[in-house]
């Protein structure tokens, strides 16, 4: 490369000095699971139980605290479980069999679909003063596939935040913002409101791409 010296060493190249690509081998699929945690957020120690019995049996919290927490989660579930317009939208997030018709839960959710309450989350101690929250199975199809057969599940809150409880243990921790953010009004999520115009236009053209130009 000794002959590659530019004739005028003072001239700055008009091109990038280096190019590196980190994703090319698996563009797209590799983009999953890269969400970084905001390290500035403080974590809260929480307990996650799939049933009232599991809470009482573990004896970290008193039976009375468990009973109150489970009831509070049930009440919050009725009032604020996420609503979906179709069963398919609901199951896309919460997994096959993870949803029920809203009418079966509360008259207020008629004509909607709700995830089943899969667990409830409470603080490790009363002093944390955390609100009890119902949790839902978090099982979007593309994440199950991305993790192969070893997908470990996990939960999400009604506000859409993730809660992981590793290895079936009840004890875990979540960012304070997740532990303290509750939804008093249900989130109603609709899908499919983007893309229709493009599909219609693309169907009448024949570009390499559809949206680009």
């Amino acid at each position: 490369m000794s002959e590659a010296l530019p004739p005028d060493p003072a001239r700055r190249a008009k091109r990038s000095a280096t190019i590196s690509l980190v994703l090319v081998a698996g563009a797209g699929a590799a983009a999953f699971g890269l969400a970084r945690l905001d390290s500035s957020q403080r974590d809260e120690d929480v307990l996650v139980y799939g049933s009232l019995g599991a809470c009482i049996a573990e004896r970290i919290r008193s039976a009375e605290a468990c009973t109150q927490a489970e009831a509070a989660a049930r009440a919050a579930y009725l009032a604020s479980a996420p609503r979906y317009e179709t069963l398919a939208d609901c199951e896309r997030h919460h997994g096959p069999g993870g949803c029920v018709p809203g009418a079966a839960v509360t008259p207020a959710a008629q004509d909607r679909y709700l995830p089943v309450m899969a667990a409830f989350m409470m603080g490790r101690t009363d002093e944390q003063d955390l609100p009890v929250q119902p949790l839902y199975a978090h099982a979007p199809a593309e994440e199950r596939h991305a993790h192969g057969g070893g997908y470990a599940g996990g939960y999400c809150t009604g506000a859409g935040a993730r809660v992981f409880s590793a290895g079936g243990t009840s004890r875990t921790h979540v960012p304070a913002s997740v532990a303290r953010t509750t939804t008093s009004t249900p989130r109603t999520i609709a899908y499919g409101g983007f893309g229709g115009t493009g599909r219609t236009v693309a169907a009448s053209g024949s570009g390499h791409g559809s949206g680009g130009g």
């Binding site: 797209g28 978090h138 009004t185 249900p186 899908y191």
Partner: peptide, 22 residues
Amino acid sequence: PFLPVEAIGLESSDGWFVDQAG
């Protein structure tokens, strides 16, 4: 992360656009 255009959702109470997992 990537998501298909059709997989974008809309949360009607607060107006956020959401991913497949809400």
